[in-house]
Every structure is written in structure tokens, then in C-alpha cells.
Computed example of a mutant assay.
Amino acid sequence: MNLDPRRLLVLHAIARSGGVASAARALGHTRSAVSQQLASLEREVGLPLVDRSGGRLELTAAGRLLATTGERIGQELTLAAQQLSAANDQVAQGPVAVGATSWVLARIAAPALRLLDRWHPRLEPRFLEAGLTDGLRQLRLGELDVLVIIDDRDTAVALPPGVGAQVLSEDEYRVVVPAAWDIPATAAELSGRPWIGAPLNSARGRAFARFADVHKVVPSVEHLADHMIAVQAMLAGQIGAAILPAFLAAQFDHSTVTTLPVTGSQITRILYRTGHGGAATGARATVDALRQAAREYAEAVTAAGRTKGDIVIRPLRDPTDPAPATAARAARAR
């Protein structure tokens, strides 16, 4: 049995607060997201964990057992955070500048700010809208401490000196066509048709260039749209086909997600200043808040039924990290 510890934390919050709605308020989640996590946990264990037959929610014996385990996990996480803070001998405080795309800002900036206010009240985060090119320049110049970028795993951009990276999310690409189009059986059928492309240096632009080269696809015209709201509107207007990450594509109306093969994957990377001192400590604290805010957003979207499948949380390797086999060989050589 493979239990997700985050769901045990949610169950503990339900037990402590006395209900799903109150647990959602305490956790900063939506009620539907908490209900989704509870349902997923019941599927994992194969047992009912709550009883609603008496008119109010009560935990079953199995639910009480797992809620106690969730409480212990929460205590251990709190203790670990305290120990890490003491080991670093640094308090996250002072200004920290965070650059991100408009899509990221619209979805996780506000919840990340709330988390930072609760976790690190002496930190002074400031969000700025920044794309890939200008964001990397600002990071190199020290104008940004943290930068969230959309990248392509196969052609990921190199890190500036003194900068670390974590992958926030990863998603396979999909070919998406307007709903009024016939569903193509092969990529060749989309040659000579209009496409909604992206700037060449963007993740989507690099993915489309790779797809077009592999399948010899030549658009009749290639419209360019960088922002997702523009891509969504152009698909709805039957303007052309596009390559999108699967999680996002599933949320678009008036379009069809095909099963045509597209190599590679899109990743969201958090780049942050490394080293010692207050600036690096504040950057690491901001990375933690961004990761938590992104998980909560993904869970809420899934719980609302706006995408398919359940959220899978697993360690994601940044392209700058050595592959496991390479790391193992290096360890044996030392």
C-alpha cells in the first residue's frame, strides 16, 4: 500500500477541525480539493475513513488511526523546518524579487504570498512579470532572486553562475486542433494547414520546431502567440493547430486534444540564487512557497474536474542535474 503523506495531513486537518469545509479553510484549500484528497485516500486504503450517516462527519476507526499518523507527520515536518532554520543560522528576511510569466503570476502569486506571510513574516517578497529572455538577464544582473520559467526539457536553457534550479512541474506535449476540424490520424495531415506557433526561443516554439522537423510538417501560415489566453482564443476561433502541454490542453474548450506523438516534455523550472546569507535564504524560502502554491493550484483544478486524472507528486530532475547512472558512476569513481 502506497500512502500519500500529504493526504494523511489533510485527514488530520479534517479530524482536528471537525469537517471538510473547516479543514479547507484551515489549509487554505477549496472544499472540493479537500474532498478529492479524502476520496483518493479512501481509494488507496480500500476502506471508508469517515461516516456521515449520523448527520455530521465522524472518522471511522481506520480514519482515526490514519489521522493520528497524519498528526505525527505534521509534527515531524514542523520539527524538521525548525532544525533546518537553526542549522542555517539565518532568518528569511528582507526583500526578495521574484520574476514569473503572467500565467504563473495569475495562478500562484497570491497563494505564495499568503504562505510566505505565514511562514516568514519578515520576508519582503515582490513579484515582477518577466519572460524567459528578460528574466534570465535580470537574474544574471542580480535584479531578481528567483525566476520561474517555462522550458523544454530536451533543450533546457543553461543556468547562470551562482544559480540553482528545481523543476516545479513536467508535462507531455499534445497536438491540439480546433473542435471543428477533422481529427487527424497522422501528423502529415496537418502539413499545409495553419498553425498557432510561439517564439522560437520559447519552450513551445522549440517543441514545434522539433515536431515539424521530425514529421516534415510545413504550415500554410504560422501565427505566433506566446500567452496562453491568446492561444486559447485562437483555437476557439478555429485559427489553427497548436502544440500544448497536456495538463493545460485538457482545460481548453472548443478544441480537440489528439493522440499524435510529440517528443519531449514541457517543464516549469524555478531558478534561484544560491550561496549563503540572507538573500539566498530568502530565495530558498520563496522556492518552497512557490512549490506549495503550485501543488495546491493543480489539486484544485483536478478536484474541480477541469482536467483529467489525479495529481501525481514525484521528484522531478532538473536537466542540469546528472542522470542517475552518471551520478552513480561518478560516486564509484571517487
Rank of each mutant, 00 (worst) to 15 (best):
L8F: 03
R56C: 05
A187R: 03
A188N: 01
L248C: 01
Q266Y: 00
P48Y: 03
A330Q: 12
V287K: 01
I73W: 11
T307K: 10
P261I: 07
R153Q: 12
L38A: 09
V91K: 10
G197P: 03
F208Q: 15
A212F: 02
E189L: 09
A13M: 01
A246K: 14
R126Q: 14
T263I: 05
I313L: 15
A207R: 04
H29M: 09
P160I: 04
A293L: 06
R122G: 01
H29D: 14
G278I: 08
T256F: 08
P322N: 07
D321N: 02
A207V: 05
R56Q: 15
L113G: 13
D213S: 13
A331Y: 03
A33N: 12
E129Y: 02
G55V: 07
A325T: 09
R153D: 13
A230M: 04
N88I: 00
V163A: 02
A236N: 06
T259M: 01
R193M: 12
T256G: 01
R64V: 05
E124L: 13
L116S: 04
G94L: 11
G55Y: 11
L235S: 08
Q238Y: 02
I229G: 04
Q83N: 06
V257L: 12
A130N: 09
Q90V: 11
Q251C: 11
L290A: 04
D171E: 15
G197I: 06
L38W: 03
P199F: 09
P199H: 11
I243K: 08
Q266R: 13
L77Q: 13
E124G: 05
V148T: 10
Q138M: 15
R206I: 00
Q138I: 02
S35E: 15
G240E: 08
N201F: 11
A110C: 01
G131P: 11
Q292T: 14
V157S: 06
F211E: 02
T302H: 12
A207C: 10
A81W: 08
A283R: 06
T60N: 04
V167K: 02
L159H: 11
G192E: 06
A330M: 06
F211V: 00
A233G: 06
A62N: 07
R137E: 15
A109P: 11
A158N: 07
A112K: 11
L271M: 10
P194M: 06
R193S: 08
S35G: 15
I196C: 10
R6I: 05
F211L: 12
Y173R: 01
R72C: 00
G19V: 07
G277P: 02
A39T: 13
T186W: 01
P319M: 07
N2Q: 14
A185R: 13
P161D: 15
